[in-house]
Computed example of a mutant assay.
Amino acid sequence: MKQIKLILSDIDGTILDDKNMIDGGLKNNIQKLRQKKIPFILASARSPKGMVSIAKKLDVLDNPIACYNGALVVKNLQAEKYTTILSHELKISETQQILNILMNKFPRIAINLYSGSNWYVENIDKWVKIEADITKMVPIETDLTQLVAKDKIPVHKLLLIGETSEIKRVKQFLEEANYSDSSFYLSKDNYLEITNKQVSKEKALRELVNYYEINLSETMTLGDNFNDVPMLDLAGLGVAMQNAPEEVKHHAQVTTKSNNENGVSFAIKKYALKE
């Protein structure tokens, strides 16, 4: 195995345990990586604001950050106006059609719209409150249909939250509609993410490899869920968490300890720092 020169890691279920606490040894290990000039880059379905506090605690604010599963890759996240490295938005016409379907056929689903660092919702229901508690963000209440119709902001992601059974029905319905530019995937059993088809953590990894002028064989990725599979497949070393579904583990070369056992730190020490 080649020397690791870049690490791309998921957040929820990976560096965060089941109580949303950060891997206890991670900050210290990131400092060791920095000494070896190995960037540790966060990749998540979260928005830029939803990643600031974690990036600050880990002291990686000066590294690129892949938000919305790679729909938006930014740098200098601490700055009022961060630097955009990469941006892929949803097609407005498809977004309008999807909103119309959701509001008419699936009214109990919570619709969350993300644009840049902003989070928009129709109203604050129980699902939105749960997400706000996790991300420590405050959403903007507005008429989503009117917001999209104005076509003045980029739509980086729609997040649909509801009961697991209903989310599965929504996913099947939208997939059968055969939208040309939108992709649908579960980040949790009851979280359906909608982004441009050009978006994935795999593509974010490719962009970052070009940015740092290294080879894919020199990268390590860590993740725990189905939206992490593309980057686990592509990396020189794909590392699945012990808490990942078995199907996800099959796409990784190795499995580390669980998110409740500081599995990311364990993998960094074993494969990147070789301690």
Rank of each mutant, 00 (worst) to 15 (best):
residue 1 M to V: 12
residue 2 K to W: 12
residue 4 I to M: 02
residue 7 I to W: 01
residue 8 L to I: 06
residue 12 D to I: 12
residue 18 D to L: 14
residue 21 M to L: 15
residue 26 L to T: 04
residue 27 K to P: 07
residue 28 N to V: 09
residue 31 Q to L: 15
residue 31 Q to K: 13
residue 33 L to T: 06
residue 36 K to E: 13
residue 45 A to H: 08
residue 46 R to N: 06
residue 49 K to Q: 12
residue 50 G to W: 00
residue 56 K to Q: 12
residue 57 K to M: 12
residue 58 L to S: 13
residue 62 D to E: 11
residue 62 D to F: 13
residue 65 I to T: 09
residue 66 A to E: 02
residue 70 G to N: 03
residue 79 A to E: 00
residue 81 K to L: 00
residue 84 T to P: 02
residue 86 L to V: 10
residue 86 L to I: 09
residue 87 S to N: 10
residue 88 H to T: 09
residue 91 K to W: 14
residue 94 E to K: 04
residue 95 T to D: 03
residue 97 Q to L: 08
residue 97 Q to E: 12
residue 97 Q to A: 10
residue 107 P to K: 03
residue 110 A to R: 05
residue 110 A to S: 12
residue 115 S to G: 06
residue 116 G to Y: 00
residue 122 E to S: 07
residue 123 N to P: 01
residue 125 D to P: 03
residue 130 I to C: 02
residue 134 I to H: 09
residue 135 T to E: 06
residue 136 K to Y: 09
residue 139 P to T: 02
residue 142 T to P: 00
residue 143 D to G: 05
residue 147 L to D: 03
residue 149 A to C: 12
residue 152 K to T: 15
residue 153 I to Q: 12
residue 155 V to L: 08
residue 156 H to E: 03
residue 156 H to A: 06
residue 157 K to S: 08
residue 158 L to P: 05
residue 158 L to Y: 08
residue 164 T to M: 15
residue 165 S to L: 15
residue 166 E to S: 07
residue 169 R to A: 14
residue 171 K to V: 09
residue 173 F to M: 13
residue 175 E to Y: 12
residue 176 E to K: 15
residue 176 E to H: 13
residue 183 S to D: 11
residue 183 S to Y: 10
residue 184 F to H: 02
residue 184 F to K: 01
residue 185 Y to K: 10
residue 187 S to P: 12
residue 189 D to H: 15
residue 191 Y to F: 14
residue 193 E to C: 04
residue 201 K to Y: 08
residue 211 Y to D: 03
residue 212 Y to A: 07
residue 214 I to A: 01
residue 215 N to T: 12
residue 216 L to M: 07
residue 221 T to N: 10
residue 222 L to C: 14
residue 227 N to H: 06
residue 229 V to E: 06
residue 235 A to N: 01
residue 238 G to H: 03
residue 240 A to D: 00
residue 241 M to E: 07
residue 244 A to T: 00
residue 245 P to A: 11
residue 245 P to D: 08
residue 246 E to I: 10
residue 247 E to N: 10
residue 247 E to I: 00
residue 252 A to M: 00
residue 252 A to S: 01
residue 254 V to T: 08
residue 259 N to E: 06
residue 263 G to S: 11
residue 263 G to H: 09
residue 264 V to Q: 06
residue 266 F to L: 14
residue 272 A to G: 14
residue 273 L to F: 08
